[in-house]
């Protein structure tokens, strides 16, 4: 009786304003990968993923999955929902006998989409990073704090950000985002 997946962790009415959109993107596949980038397995894994493991801190590469730099020996592979098994197998096969850790962490974070011309202004209420497009443009990612929650922030094309957060924090973070968003919605006092 494999039941329906429960409702997403954050569970809120999405915001779809002219300048600002906030929504939850649930159940993405996420696999944590640890290895020494100098290990020969790194090249094989990059080929298996279709994109080399990024070694420049705070960047990500994309193929049919996104490969996000988390640390000098740590990446997060993010893909469409339901690909945990496929990805784990692909990574383990490519890793061979190398010292590699592959961990399914798909349920370890949920994902919020914050997008639109006001997205940067909204995030700046609680994120100490410089989010200027020259500094944190498409292709950049960062583990940092948003309000009082640790997040993984991903900048995509078109003023679009993904905010990956522990599900236990999602309710808090969404309440915070909606409160901070109020002034950026049309018809609200600035």
């Amino acid at each position: 009786m494999m039941g329906e997946r429960p409702s997403p962790p954050a569970r809120f009415e999405p915001v779809a304003d002219g300048d600002l959109r906030i929504a939850e993107v649930s159940f993405l596949t996420q696999v944590n990968l640890r290895l020494d980038p100098g290990d020969p397995a790194a090249g094989d894994i990059g080929r298996a993923l279709g994109v080399p493991l990024p070694t420049e801190p705070g960047t990500y590469g994309s193929a049919d999955v996104d490969v996000l730099w988390l640390g000098p020996d740590e990446w997060l592979i993010v893909g469409e929902p339901g690909r945990e098994r496929d990805l784990e197998t692909r990574l383990r096969t490519a890793a061979g006998t190398g010292h590699v850790a592959v961990t399914d962490v798909s349920a370890q974070r949920t994902t919020l989409l914050v997008a639109g011309p006001k997205a940067r202004d909204l995030l700046a209420h609680g994120c100490a990073l410089d989010l200027h497009p020259r500094v944190f443009g498409p292709g950049r990612c960062a583990q940092t704090m948003l309000a009082r929650a640790q997040v993984l922030l991903v900048a995509r094309d078109g003023d679009e950000f993904l905010v990956l957060v522990r599900p236990s924090f999602a309710g808090y973070l969404v309440a915070w985002l909606l409160d901070a968003a109020a002034e950026h919605l049309s018809g609200q006092p600035g």
Partner: peptide
């Protein structure tokens, strides 16, 4: 600032 009332500190909950 915003760190007051219900948002004073994150409330973490399980599934």
């Amino acid at each position: 600032g915003r760190d007051r009332g219900a948002l004073h500190d994150p409330v973490r909950v399980t599934p």
